[in-house]
Write a protein that binds this DNA or RNA. Structure first.
Ligand code: MN
Ligand code: MN
Ligand code: ZN
Ligand code: ZN
Lengths: 139, 139
DNA sequence: CAATAGTTTAGAATATTTCTAAACAACGTT
DNA sequence: AACGTTGTTTAGAAATATTCTAAACTATTG
């Protein structure tokens, strides 16, 4: 209970966030598991299930703080709900339109050889590739 | 007032939608103008401004019907709000994160030479490339 | 024109996210 | 260890976008 937390404490301090009870608990849930995609509501439910009392507002605050700090990434594939990703490396996604599930595509599995030049006065933030798929009814 | 409508009437009939007053008016607003991106609320306001009385529910119904019929396309770049596109050809987008504006990128200006194979039992719906840009503060 | 099926509508409902402002906790300083 | 400061958490309300409901309306066919 003491040692495992030292990692998340260090990580939070590194990005300039106070290691509060709620942030540590959420960070532990998020970063002890492998790479995954989730919504705010899902994380809130997961926390509740693990006996961690944290408000939904704090979950949202934390997700945005972590995203800004670069230890989480937000993925937009569905209007009406935001998804977050513990995998912050350069990669892309399959999006299953029926189940609303996301699946990583390694950056090396998509090659873009030609990109347009950016509009005047803009900075590149990110190039997102989303491959939208549906269930094949005859399979 | 009679002739211009024949085009939208034909177009609606072609895709199996009754040419109702509201659908004709919205189709005219949408397809007489050049390619553009817009939200439901924007179209509703534009209709009101043009003296067309149509409920927001009908605007949403119509946008979804047109999208399903393939004469509009929905673009997801921002959680919390859907955008639609009168350009249904194969193309991609710049998304200006500060102003929430979209700009078309012709399919020929992006070349993807390598794509992963689709997961088992899925059908490809679309490959969306979104180049997210922000305002360059020092320009 | 009557019958039918499809459409429109206002308003309520839903869903997700953000806001508010008061209570609380982390942490550097005494 | 207590203090003061600042940052954080919280419940609940509010904001936002979209969908639902079911009654009124209209296009189409016969
Ligand atoms: Mn959905
Ligand atoms: Mn936004
Ligand atoms: Zn991912
Ligand atoms: Zn477009």
């Amino acid at each position: 209970m003491q040692r495992p937390y030292s990692q998340v404490i260090d990580r939070l301090k590194q990005v300039g966030l106070r290691p509060t009870r709620q942030r540590m608990a959420l960070a532990k849930l998020l970063f002890d598991a492998g790479d995954h995609h989730f919504s705010a509501e899902q994380l809130h439910n997961q926390a509740s299930g693990a006996g961690i009392r944290v408000s939904l507002a704090t979950v949202y605050n934390t997700l945005h703080q972590f995203t800004k700090a670069g230890i989480l990434r937000e993925i937009i594939v569905s209007s009406g709900r935001s998804y977050f990703d513990t995998n912050t490396s350069d990669h892309h996604h399959f999006f299953f339109e029926d189940s609303h599930r996301l699946l990583d595509i390694d950056a090396k599995d998509i090659t873009i050889t030609k990109l347009p030049k950016l509009p005047e006065g803009t900075l590149l933030e990110r190039v997102d590739v989303v491959i939208r798929v549906s269930d094949n009814p005859k399979s």
